[in-house]
Amino acid sequence: MKTILSIFYRMGLSLKETLYDFGILKLQTLPCKVISVGNLTVGGTGKTPVVEYVAKHLVKAKKVAILTRGYKRENKAELLDVKPESNPLECGDEAVLLARKTKVPVIAAVDRYKGGLYAMEKYDVQFCVLDDGFQRRLSLYRNLELLLIDASNPFGNGKLLPAGILREKIKNIVAADVIIITKVDDAKDMPKLLETIKEYNDFADIVESTYEPKELINVFDKNDILPFSEVPSKKIFALSGVGNPKYFKKVLSMLNPSGLGWLSYSDHYAYTEKDIEAINEKSASADIIITTEKDAVKLELLDKTKFTKKLYALNIELKILKGEKELEDKINIT
């Protein structure tokens, strides 16, 4: 059944491309520079830290806004101006996280063109960074296309949704100006991945990266920072609702805890007070609970007195191992 649905999905993609090719659907252009960060697959490639990296690099010299759709947000308004203090359930967890970490305007809008116009009018921005923008390259012009590929699972089984994890055909790698390979520390076959990339795109700069743990901050008390040096003496419990929980557990294992248990919910999971009982039960033998930054912005809405263990968020940053100068040069000349 999924294979049949994938055929219809492919037909839909082809029809959309044809409509743009013949000018029936129009490409829109914002009167500012646009940098897109996106991927070919669903879930867990690590877009948010890359969007953060690009925005922080640009804001040193330019006025910048981030355009996102605010995935799974409860507030379905056409446009939301997301603040660090905004409710992540209403605006989207990633949107609020980006607002907190970058300190630049974050606009959640299904129509990124309208979101960009709003950002320009209200904040006089010179650059817009598109979060998850690769699938919208036909509808909105961009000056620089950054495509992320997860080295731990680049293309899944090679099939389109829903039979596989591909959101579009692998050959569309050709549309990227820079290809950022993430999680190279968990690569299954790096030479083969590089060969596949070169087969479809031999002109894009290739950047190799991973994610580096920065600090552990108490979800309910930001002044309580747990040194990494104390982790080896503790049994930790990993709590997450992200696209790639296995990689989160891998990063935690690098901290060498004395024990590691885990509980994984679906990506962008909206925690409720009812979940606390299950979390407490499953983490009973642990010393502390560690969650992701994306989960933390939602967990902090819950009653902290109901948790039986201290709850920490692992803050991570993009770490570029190869190609950082090429990436920065491309961003700078955009």
Rank of each mutant, 00 (worst) to 15 (best):
V106D: 02
L140P: 01
T102Q: 08
L67N: 06
R136G: 03
K76T: 15
K101Q: 15
C128I: 11
V125H: 07
Q135Y: 09
K76I: 13
V104Y: 03
P88H: 04
R112T: 06
G70E: 02
R69C: 04
A95D: 03
V50R: 01
D81K: 06
C128W: 00
Q126W: 03
K83G: 07
A65G: 11
D93N: 08
G46E: 05
R73D: 07
G44M: 04
L97V: 05
L117V: 11
C128R: 00
K83W: 04
V96F: 01
P84N: 09
A77W: 05
N75L: 10
A65M: 09
I66W: 04
Y123M: 14
Y71V: 07
V42H: 04
A151V: 03
K103C: 14
K76M: 13
A99G: 07
T48H: 03
R136C: 01
A99Q: 00
T68Q: 06
L79I: 15
V104D: 08
D93Q: 08
V50W: 00
L89G: 12
K83V: 05
K76Y: 09
N143W: 05
V106L: 10
S86K: 04
Q126K: 15
C91A: 15
G92L: 02
P105H: 12
L130T: 04
D132E: 14
A65T: 11
K60F: 07
A65S: 14
L97N: 04
K63S: 15
K72T: 14
K101I: 07
K122E: 14
D124K: 15
I107R: 00
N143I: 05
G44H: 03
L144H: 10
L117F: 07
V110T: 14
V54Y: 06
I107V: 14
G70D: 02
I66F: 09
G70N: 01
G44F: 00
V125M: 11
G133E: 09
P84M: 08
D93C: 08
I107G: 02
T41K: 05
P88K: 01
V110H: 13
K47E: 11
G43F: 03
I66A: 13
D132G: 10
D132L: 07
N87V: 10
A109K: 00
A99C: 07
L130N: 01
V129I: 14
L147H: 05
P49T: 13
D150W: 00
C128T: 13
V125L: 13
I107T: 06
L146N: 09
L147Y: 03
G92Q: 02
H57L: 09
V106E: 03
A55T: 15
I66N: 04
G44A: 07
Q135R: 10
L140S: 03
A108V: 11
D111Q: 11
V42I: 14
K103G: 08
I66P: 02
G92V: 02
G44W: 00
R142Y: 06
E145W: 03
L146Y: 05
K63E: 14
E78W: 06
L97C: 06
F127G: 08
T102D: 09
A151T: 04
L67Q: 04
Q126R: 13
D131S: 12
L144W: 02
L97M: 12
L58E: 06
C128E: 08
E145C: 09
P88C: 06
A55F: 07
Y123Q: 12
K72M: 13
K63C: 12
T68H: 05
K83N: 10
Y71L: 09
D93F: 00
E90P: 00
L117M: 15
V42F: 12
V51Q: 10
A61H: 15
K114G: 10
Q126I: 06
Y71E: 11
